[in-house]
Design a protein around this nucleic acid. Sequence first.
RNA 1: CGGGGUGUAGCGCAGUUGGUAGCGCGCGUCGUUCGGGACGACGAGGUCGCAAGUUCGAAUCUUGUCACCCCGACCA
Length: 504
Amino acid sequence: MAAKTAITPTRADDYPEWYQQVVKAADLAENSPVRGCMVIKPWGYAIWENMQRVLDKMFKDTDHVNAYFPLLIPLSFLEKEAEHVEGFAKECAVVTHHRLEAKPGGGLVPAGELDEPLIIRPTSETIIGASYAKWVQSYRDLPILINQWANVMRWEMRTRMFLRTSEFLWQEGHTVHATAQEAMEETMRMLDVYADFAENYMAMPVIKGEKTPEERFPGAVNTYTIEAMMQDRKALQSGTSHFLGQNFAKASGIKFLNQESREEIAWTTSWGVSTRLVGGLLMTHSDDDGLILPPRLAPHHVVIMPIHRNDEEKAQVMEFCHSLKAELQAQQYSGQPLQVHIDQRDLRGGEKSWQHIKKGVPLRVEVGPRDVASGSVAVGRRDQEPKAKAFIPRAEFVGTVTKILDEMQSGLLNKALKHREENTQKIDSWDDFVAYFTPRNADKPEIHGGFALSHWSPGPEALEKLKDLKVTARCIPLDGEKESGKCLFSGRPSPQRVIFAKSY
RNA sequence: CGGGGUGUAGCGCAGUUGGUAGCGCGCGUCGUUCGGGACGACGAGGUCGCAAGUUCGAAUCUUGUCACCCCGACCA
């Protein structure tokens, strides 16, 4: 007997567990033998590849180029920028040896101790800075606009698939500019690229904002973020763009001669998004039947499931399927040919169909003898009930498929946007604030809270008061209306509201 | 690093007062099925985390050890 929902528990019952179950049911990833690391399985990786493809094009369209810098960084490099050390020292994996030797009685022991330990990059500002220091001599060498796709490692205490793993995949842009203004423009340009990607490809609405000093990237002058609201109303920091000022340029010695032949210290930025986005995608759209993928990032847009009982039927059905696939693939969707997969596996129809539902494939098409005879297809949409099936003429489906996908894409964005709006409110008293972020059932907290827009001014008060609530300032919205008020925590004047939320 | 817990088949688990290993799922074969998560029969699969001890006999008791998980500080 089929369960009511494909995923147990449901989101309402136990959101974190639901998340894990969707990762598993959608075959995105699994735990690895190494603590905190994950194996990204083909379906999960295909989503990441699509993200990469789109982002990479956006980077190149904004004049960036790709390069690659080493995984291992001399320990001394990290030490160069004081705040940076402070921020990352505690989570660095350190390589101290370069050889293994057989141990008497079996096993291997590290040997060949290194003179200087190497760290596995938690981020690459310092090692890239060393190269940039050599590459930059003159104002004519600027700007440098480089991105790298890489893995990094941060020895996290608590990990969660995609959202926080010890090793994760990301891209990190590192740019050098002659002036503060140029670097600042770059910082904002890339923040806009991220917001564009999140909303128009992931269908995940985000709020662009500046981080409060406590939440800044170690060593940055300013950190900007895109913050998204997940279905449990928690915030997910989905991408960051940092204006590093001259901090790292000073530390790495990135200097140039300006047009007046005077030496100047350069201005740098860095910006990144990671495989965390896959987790964000999941938590933004998926339901109690599994993953829901926005069509523009789905590895397959359409899965065709042939149905037949004997060889004769099979021949006719398969011919129909292959020609349908060819017709569909001839169409462009979101800058590439429509991705169509024929699932011919020897599985029961129901089982097969549910697998694709759980994996979030936007459109499922069943083709059986009846369809071959009538020239129709049976279409199921992932944004509708699992059992809803529309029998429509084949030509009509072929003619409207991209329109349907666009409709699904915008439907997802609108739904997510509505969810965020419904769970965002202005809060002006501390009591209301506490009530907003306190679950009614303390033992088994229900989904509660959301984004609180409250007045805030810099200072230690907020951090202190928020400690027990597990709420943090997510960002100072960039396009928030200017509205003066009194800081909820210190009572000092505040020029605008800040977003507070529980977060991942 | 503090507090709590768990290690038994690929996964999830049971295993009583010590007596020589079991269930569900999954997997394989065959049959009936198949347009929405099928059913039956048969079958494969285990140094009971590791080590020492007690005992005629240890998954079970003792000691040690290792690993992992959960709760806190850290975070794309």
